[in-house]
């Protein structure tokens, strides 16, 4: 029993390491090769946990090999467009100039219902609003609305707005997050000053956010 326990812990750490090695892209939308790796890794990892007759290497070596090969392949795909096309495929245009490409839909084995469902998922209930739609290599569909149906922007209304970065967390549960203050090019003393201005100290702050223009939001901890 203890053997299974230790094996499970080791393989858990290994799978976490493998997923981290594959990078953040892995956690988002999966490319075909990444999907294959994910399924394989999850299957391989269970074998040596369940069967103590199998050496751990029968799990460790294939997991590491698959992940490493995938990372190396993705590095090659970055360099070679041709190779990328072979491994990841290419995006397919399914609506162009407002017209649905029926041949392409058939090739992608996608029904009209599937297409309409995806559009509805993007708040488009009328297909005539779509100018251009493309199926990405990850399987998701990107849609561009017709100009006449597009959302108004401040630029359309000739309203000048300053471009600012979104606010980021600088204090969480009384602790100053150094990487974020560095990003804002601020020193801990500056943060303390802002806190003092709001009649508190950093240790009393539950959450503090700050944007590039210096606008801050401070939420004090309960009872402080």
């Amino acid at each position: 029993m203890l053997i299974i326990f230790f094996r499970a812990i080791i393989l858990y750490a290994l799978v976490i390491f493998a997923i981290r090695l594959m990078g953040k892209r892995q956690l988002g939308e999966l490319q075909p090769s990444e999907l294959v790796i994910t399924i394989l890794v999850s299957n391989i990892a269970t074998l040596p946990i369940e069967d103590i007759n199998l050496p751990m290497t029968t799990g460790i070596i294939p997991i590491l090999t698959l992940v490493c090969v995938d990372v190396i392949m993705s590095a090659i795909t970055l360099k070679s467009r041709k190779f990328r096309r072979i491994i990841c495929g290419s995006p397919k245009v399914i609506i162009s100039h407002g017209k649905v490409d029926q041949t392409q839909l058939d090739r992608l084995r996608m029904s009209n219902d599937d297409l309409l469902a995806v559009l509805r998922g993007q708040d488009i209930f009328d297909i005539s609003q779509v100018q251009f739609a493309i199926m990405e290599t990850t399987g998701s569909i990107s849609v561009m609305k017709k100009q006449s149906q597009d959302t108004l922007t401040p630029q359309d209304l000739n309203i000048q707005k300053e471009d600012t970065d979104p606010p980021i967390v600088v204090i969480e549960k009384g602790k100053i997050i150094k990487s974020n203050t560095d990003f804002l090019q601020l020193k801990p003393k500056d943060i303390e000053k802002i806190c003092l201005h709001n009649k508190c100290t950093p240790s009393e702050v539950f959450l503090m956010t700050l944007d590039g223009s210096g606008n801050s939001i401070i939420i004090k901890e309960n009872g402080k």
Binding site: L21, L64, C68, V69, I72, A75
Partner: peptide, 15 residues
């Protein structure tokens, strides 16, 4: 690039 180097190292170690 760091990841790629690490992966090449791991593959080399396995071999």
């Amino acid at each position: 690039m760091k990841r790629v180097k690490l992966c090449v190292l791991i593959i080399f170690m396995i071999i």
